[in-house]
């Protein structure tokens, strides 16, 4: 791999680890940014979380699975925890993070003033589901993961995830199209 960022080589970072980190970044940074952007209120929050996710990845590089698909699921799992902690964290006053935030399409983070009724209803219904169920549905619907892959992100068993996904879909459907009893 051509090293177009020689400054990234640091005496504290052996070449092998450096190359692994770069490979991880090149393979997954778009997916990780996408995951974070879809769940963040602002570009700043997404950019800050992105920095935190790869900080964890760098520190725990030996724990990152070798297979690309597994590595992506591992990063999604870290991203999920990072966002969960974001409310408690201090936002870094970091020029580089701010610069990344400035490149993200701001329109993607702002809900349109008027949106199709059906989409608004889906968002409202998702918000009424338990957090883990909503995240499971998002992983399937937004990241395109299968149940076993979503299970890896959520640190659940595959069978548990399948049954939870089935229930979550049913619950979402009922929220979107309530029976007369549920309306009452």
């Amino acid at each position: 791999m051509a090293d177009i960022y020689p400054s990234m080589r640091h005496p504290h970072l052996p070449a092998e680890r450096h190359d692994r980190l770069v490979a991880l970044f090149e393979a997954h940074h778009v997916a990780v940014l996408g995951y974070l952007a879809r769940r963040s209120a602002t570009p700043e929050q997404a950019a800050d979380a992105f920095s935190d996710v790869f900080l964890v990845a760098w520190r725990r590089l030996d724990a990152v699975p070798a297979a690309p698909r597994d590595a992506r699921l591992w990063l999604y799992g870290v991203a999920r925890h990072t966002l969960a902690n974001a409310r408690r964290a201090h936002r870094r006053n970091d020029r580089l993070v701010a610069r990344l935030a400035a490149t993200l399409p701001r329109s993607a983070f702002v809900a349109p003033a008027v949106e199709p009724t059906a989409l608004g209803q889906v968002r409202a219904a998702l918000a009424r589901l338990p957090d883990d169920d909503a995240e499971l549905l998002r992983l399937v619907g937004w990241e395109g993961l299968g149940p076993s892959e979503a299970a890896a992100v959520l640190d659940l068993g595959p069978e548990t995830t399948r049954s939870r996904l089935h229930r979550a879909r049913a619950r979402l459907r009922s929220l979107l199209d309530p029976t007369p009893e549920e309306v009452r």
Binding site: Y5, M8, L21, V22, F25, H29, V30, A31, L33, G34, A37, R38, A47, F50, S51, F54, L96, V97, R99, L100, A102, T103, L104, P105, A108, F109, A111, A118, L119, V122, R123, L126, L137, R138, V140, G141, W142, L172, L176
Partner: peptide, 26 residues
């Protein structure tokens, strides 16, 4: 319906400016 609620798709972030800025963070 869930897919339709996505605010931004991955390919929309596959942009040279985003790549450069993200790389600087790394």
């Amino acid at each position: 319906l869930l897919t339709a609620t996505m605010t931004v798709a991955d390919h929309e972030l596959d942009d040279p400016a985003v790549h450069t800025a993200a790389r600087a963070v790394i």
